[in-house]
């Protein structure tokens, strides 16, 4: 689901409450596309409650107006990167990590993706670990929120989505579609079929690829996974493939096809 757009008046109230102005791309997405819902990682957090989700408590009044110190043009930060916040931050027991940022999504465990709202990187998207002394923040290549979100949409729809959430948005990630089609290792092809099928959007091109694997892959475990993934949200156009899979040489594939058709 994608939450309904946020009225401009509520965005303004949020900005006045915290003494900031949201980066224009994120602001226009909120007011015209939606607030929270389908997106990278576990989905976009709502502007209203991301602080409860991430921190379990409301943020301090000065949290968003305090600059996030890092800049994507600086050299890559080292393991002691958080000293950039200054000694007062390190000595403050109540200080939360990552001032000047809003959490956009969780990528599992303590891994989060943030939007910088104050500081030299304002408008940029950055991957972080809430255990701030474990991993240094890593800026994505995207110039702003809309580029980040659209890249996820493109990668998802075109089958570049993969299972590991912390690497799903790297530019250099090999397309899952190509792995399913071309990899010689059946275990890799199965991972690719699973990754493709997990995407929230299955475009006709991806359905066609999964369908080809379901009836044509030489390895039964790959055919079975492709059938299961197609069968999670089948469309009428998938029936032909699923019916053909009922006569597969492997009983496991036939069983998966039967369950998909019965579902």
């Amino acid at each position: 689901l994608l939450g309904p757009p946020m009225p401009e008046s509520r965005v303004v109230a949020f900005e006045e409450q915290y003494g900031i102005r949201l980066p224009p791309c994120y602001r226009s997405f909120l007011t015209t596309i939606g607030n929270g819902g389908i997106g990278p990682g576990a989905g976009l957090l709502h502007l209203d409650d991301w602080d409860y989700v991430v921190l379990g408590a409301p943020i301090r009044p000065d949290h968003l107006s305090t600059p996030f110190p890092l800049s994507p043009t600086d050299p890559a930060p080292g393991p002691d990167w958080y000293h950039a916040f200054g000694p007062a931050w390190l000595d403050d027991d109540d200080a939360e990590p990552y001032p000047g940022t809003i959490a956009l999504t969780t990528r599992g465990c303590s891994l989060y993706t943030l939007l910088v709202v104050t500081g030299p990187a304002r408008g940029r998207v950055v991957d972080v670990n809430l255990e701030f002394d474990v991993d240094a923040p890593s800026f994505t290549h995207d110039t702003d929120f809309l580029d980040w979100y659209e890249r996820w949409l493109d990668q998802t729809g075109n089958g570049m989505h993969s299972a590991p959430p912390d690497v799903a948005l790297r530019d250099d990630e090999p397309p899952m579609a190509a792995i399913l089609r071309d990899a010689s290792d059946p275990a890799l092809r199965e991972v690719a079929a699973r990754g493709l099928g997990r995407a929230p959007i299955l475009t006709p091109a991806v359905r066609s690829l999964l369908g080809a694997a379901a009836v044509g892959d030489p390895a039964p475990e790959v055919r079975r996974t492709a059938v299961i993934m197609l069968g999670r949200r089948p469309t009428p156009s998938d029936d032909d493939v699923l019916v053909r899979a009922l006569t597969d040489a492997s009983a496991d594939v036939r069983e998966a096809a039967l369950q998909a058709l019965a579902g």
Partner: peptide, 18 residues
């Protein structure tokens, strides 16, 4: 904004699934 319109169009299949 052209990018917002493009994103809305790309999100359309998601809405179709609901």
């Amino acid at each position: 904004d052209a990018r917002l319109r493009r994103i809305a169009a790309k999100l359309a299949p998601v809405r179709d699934l609901l």
